[in-house]
């Protein structure tokens, strides 16, 4: 009996220690996450990024601060999860640099109740960020195992409201649309015409352009009230190719 009580006692101590370690790890992660958010905010101010030109919307930053990025990266890269850089997530795909994710989300100008379509779910991080903002998100991924992993992850993390689908993003998801915002993270030689049709008047589409790990420009497509399209090409960093007079 005594031995049994002893074992129980030790077990309790062990569980308490494990819990303690988990809490400590979570706290450490949370600290790293806040540091990352601060870095993203500072970068955005520094590079005059974001729709306001002077930084990223506080809601976006707050959502970024709530999102456990370490859950969206392979377990071997967890230690790097809160570094402000892109990371490989397998299958030749990446999770973008948090700064780029923040700028793109900010450019979409979405809020609670809006609808958004994402082409290229990847790890699901971007979709979860939009969901954190109260957006009704639909997301399509072409690579089957990646899509399954992302859907499972989103469910596990409490983002069950995000509609996920495996397949061709070219034709969008008309049943879920039209959308206030569309994000095309899968590289394309042209903007799929069906996606433009599924964008609401006043809606915005963002397309990051560049090879993997190198987002060189962000293309923003705005659909005006009369249905005409306007595109803006933005560089995520300030780089003026010419200096001096004239």
């Amino acid at each position: 009996m005594k031995a049994g009580r002893n074992i129980c006692g030790w077990l309790l101590v062990a569980i308490a220690l494990v819990c303690d370690a988990c809490i400590a790890a979570d706290e450490a992660m949370a600290k790293e996450r806040q540091a990352m958010v601060a870095e993203v905010a500072a970068m955005a101010r520094d590079f005059h990024a974001g729709t306001a030109g002077g930084g990223i919307d506080a809601h976006v930053l707050a959502a970024l601060g709530r999102l456990p990025r370490h859950e969206f990266v392979p377990s071997t890269l967890r230690a790097s999860a809160y570094e402000n850089r892109p990371l490989p997530v397998g299958y030749g795909q990446t999770i973008s640099q948090p700064y780029i994710v923040a700028v793109m989300t900010d450019l979409l100008r979405v809020g609670a109740g809006d609808t958004a379509l994402e082409i290229g779910t990847g790890s699901g991080y971007q979709a979860a960020l939009l969901a954190e903002l109260g957006v009704k998100v639909s997301t399509i991924e072409i690579v089957e195992p990646l899509a399954r992993e992302a859907a499972e992850r989103l469910r596990r993390l409490g983002y069950g409201g995000i509609a996920t689908r495996i397949g061709d993003g070219y034709h969008g998801w008309p049943e879920q649309g039209p959308f206030d915002a569309i994000m095309v993270t899968a590289a394309a030689s042209h903007v799929p015409p069906p996606l433009l049709r599924q964008l609401k008047s006043g809606g915005r589409m963002v397309i990051p352009v560049g090879p993997p790990f190198q987002t060189q420009q962000l293309m923003l497509v705005e659909k005006r009230a009369d249905g005409t399209l306007l595109t803006r090409q933005l560089m995520p960093v300030i780089f003026v190719p010419l200096t001096g007079g004239h």
Binding site: H190, V191, P193
Partner: peptide, 18 residues
């Protein structure tokens, strides 16, 4: 066949079809 490749560099956003 499931997800056809589509290559049309420089296609205008006003093009109705790919």
């Amino acid at each position: 066949p499931l997800v056809p490749l589509r290559h049309a560099p420089g296609l205008s956003l006003n093009a109705g079809d790919g």
